[in-house]
Nucleic acid binder design. Structure first.
Lengths: 159, 159
DNA sequence: TAATTATATGTAGTTAACTACGTAGATTTG
DNA sequence: CAAATCTACGTAGTTAACTACATATAATTA
């Protein structure tokens, strides 16, 4: 990965994705090694339902920052695993309300120690001179002020 | 994205990917706005060939840190765009040697000012208290020492 | 030098997100 | 209150990476 490492900031999107993938793959292995049948991609949904207990599809999507079709496909998997269940909202027939099942809640209990280990390891890994988590938060704030495209428009277009 | 923002480091893989996607999407728009027909995903291959001029498929894959099938599919697209061409290595009939075409080289010339704008904007965006690029490099170094899974194994498994 | 192993490339299918589009129910407005 | 618009959900198809497997050539070894 010589060239990409050296091409600097232009390949930052590639670098971010590579890091994300590595962490996710290890996440899968860590759950497995601890005897837990859980995929990292499910975390945002499950964690959201853990905190909020009952939400509609679109509410979950908005909490986790995914599109609703992506959320629907995660919910399908989780329903198949019997970790969540859903019912129509009687007050608004368009909505489907999602909740954890007892199995889902138990799984969360069993995952607590694993999450604790993960937090420790991730904190360790990222606790360097420039803190990755903080850097992400800071860049997201910068982008909220003015995004990459908007900034480029302001400088360019090259005539 | 309340919950994910607050779930902290456990959702770091999701956060990294989200940021990567946003930057890539804006990258696409910036090329377009500057009248350049180029996709950000092509950057690693094109930039590598710009520096090294002639390489085999596996050499490119290794330089950009992708698997060879991913690289092959990028090369197919680039060949269709006539930005690269390939020929068998006479010394080793297994190898396919890849080079930029004249069109590819011209495109790179035309992209230089856009890359310059991008570098400026990205540097600006990430030049916060905790520098994102530096943070990535530091975390990659940490992971080389001992990865996420390895660290978790050392602490756990929970008995 | 024949057999084995390693390397380079290629194909098929998977994954985890996305966009685009469609429908049904709720809300707003002329 | 009928028509128009908006919101919630769902489906189909795309994307950009991956893994697993297959094949051909090269290199090594018995």
């Amino acid at each position: 990965m010589n060239v990409i490492d050296e091409s600097g900031i232009l390949a930052i999107s590639t670098r971010l994705q590579r890091l994300s993938d590595q962490l996710r793959k290890d996440g899968t292995l860590i759950y497995k090694a601890n005897g837990i049948d859980f995929e990292p991609k499910w975390f945002p949904v499950i964690y959201t339902l853990h905190l909020k207990s009952i939400l509609s599809v679109v509410e979950i999507a908005s909490e986790i920052g995914y599109t609703h079709p992506s959320t629907i496909s995660l919910l399908k998997e989780l329903e198949k695993e019997k970790l969540i269940r859903s019912k129509r909202d009687k007050a608004d027939e368009r909505k489907r309300l999602i909740q954890l099942t007892a199995k889902g809640q138990e799984l969360i209990e069993r995952m607590q120690p694993v999450w604790k280990i993960m937090v420790t390891c991730l904190t360790d890994l990222t606790n360097t001179q420039n803190n990755l988590m903080q850097a992400i938060i800071e860049v997201e704030q910068q982008m909220k002020r003015s995004g990459f495209f908007e900034r480029a428009e302001r400088i360019g277009p090259v005539t």
